[in-house]
Computed example of a mutant assay.
Amino acid sequence: MAGRIRRHWKRWLIAGVVTVAVLTTAGPYLYINYIQDEPPAALSLDSPPSASDTSSGNSSGSGEQASGSVEGAWRVGSGSQAGYRVDEVLFGQNVTAVGRTEEVTGDLEIEGDSAVSGTITVDLASVESDSAERDGQFRGRIMNTEQFPAATFELTEPADFGSAPAVNEQVTAEATGDLTIHGETNSVTFELTAQRTADGFRTNGSIPLTFADYGIDAPNFGGITVEDEGSIEFLLTFTSA
């Protein structure tokens, strides 16, 4: 009798271990591939204006034709977005994490066909993804937004676009400046694309980011392993200052 009980107990124990193993491997797979939404597409000038951008009167449609010159002072307007994109491994499954905010401010000075100065500031504490747990880790031990609440980019060299585009036309330039995150500053260079609108312009770009360069520990937690590199993406709407 006792032997039969031990054998049954062993069977139940083995079955329990197998069940846990299946749930551990199959659960994340099913969630990621069949339940979780696809990550947002990368920000681009093909992205439609957000609701706040449209309501403020900014549009990338043809509308009233803008004048030829874009010289002067400009400021970041409503509908602008910035955030991060990074690859993760969630319990053995590859996923892409995306967090964004519209809490972006800044200014830009244009002389001729070049942006000669400018500063962009992003409120990191307002960045949100599709996971409250990830957002808590981002604001807490990863970015420590209480001590370092903002990320800033300051243009240090003129970005020459070559010409003032017509409405809806896109032009590109190489932008170089100082990126400050988590209390650390590094010089970065990346491609910047601009598109003329009826009453201003929009700019878009992506800045590669290596966490160690900014004193950020590898943000791994709770079965999630994060790559050592990611990117900052932005889509900014500028209106006349």
Rank of each mutant, 00 (worst) to 15 (best):
M1Q: 06
A2I: 13
G3N: 10
R4K: 15
I5V: 13
I5H: 01
I5Y: 04
W9V: 14
K10E: 00
R11K: 14
G16Q: 00
V17T: 02
V18K: 00
T19L: 14
A26P: 12
A26C: 13
P28L: 02
L30P: 02
N33R: 07
I35S: 04
I35Y: 06
Q36C: 01
D37C: 12
E38G: 09
S47Y: 01
P49K: 10
D53N: 15
T54F: 11
N58Q: 05
N58R: 12
S60E: 13
A66Y: 10
A66G: 10
G68Q: 08
G68V: 15
S69Y: 06
V70L: 15
V70H: 11
A73F: 05
R75L: 08
V76C: 00
V76D: 00
V76H: 00
G77D: 07
S78M: 12
S78T: 14
Q81H: 02
Q81K: 01
Y84A: 08
Y84G: 07
V89C: 11
V89L: 14
G92T: 04
N94A: 14
T96P: 08
T96Y: 03
T96W: 02
T96A: 07
E103Y: 08
G106M: 10
D107E: 10
E109Y: 13
I110N: 03
E111A: 14
G112C: 09
S117Q: 10
S117G: 11
S117W: 12
G118Y: 03
V122A: 09
D123R: 01
L124C: 03
S126F: 06
S129N: 02
D130M: 00
S131C: 09
S131Y: 07
R134T: 00
G136Q: 09
G136R: 11
F138Y: 15
R141H: 11
M143K: 05
Q147S: 15
F148K: 05
P149A: 07
F153K: 08
T156F: 01
T156K: 06
E157T: 10
A159S: 07
A159G: 01
A159H: 00
D160G: 01
P165S: 08
A166I: 09
V171Q: 04
V171Y: 02
A175M: 00
T176I: 02
T176H: 02
G177M: 03
G177A: 04
D178F: 08
L179S: 09
L179K: 09
T180Y: 00
T180A: 04
T180Q: 02
E184N: 14
E184H: 11
E184I: 04
E191L: 06
E191I: 07
E191P: 15
E191Y: 04
L192P: 05
L192H: 00
L192K: 02
T193G: 05
A194N: 12
R196K: 02
T197W: 13
A198R: 06
A198V: 07
D199R: 06
G200N: 10
G200W: 05
T203Q: 04
N204H: 01
N204G: 05
S206P: 08
P208E: 09
L209T: 14
T210F: 06
T210G: 07
Y214G: 07
A218D: 13
A218F: 06
P219A: 05
G222I: 12
G223T: 02
G223F: 04
E227N: 15
D228G: 07
S231F: 03
S231I: 11
I232S: 00
I232V: 05
E233Y: 05
E233N: 10
F234M: 05
F234S: 05
L235F: 03
L235N: 07
L236G: 04
T237I: 15
F238R: 05
T239Q: 09
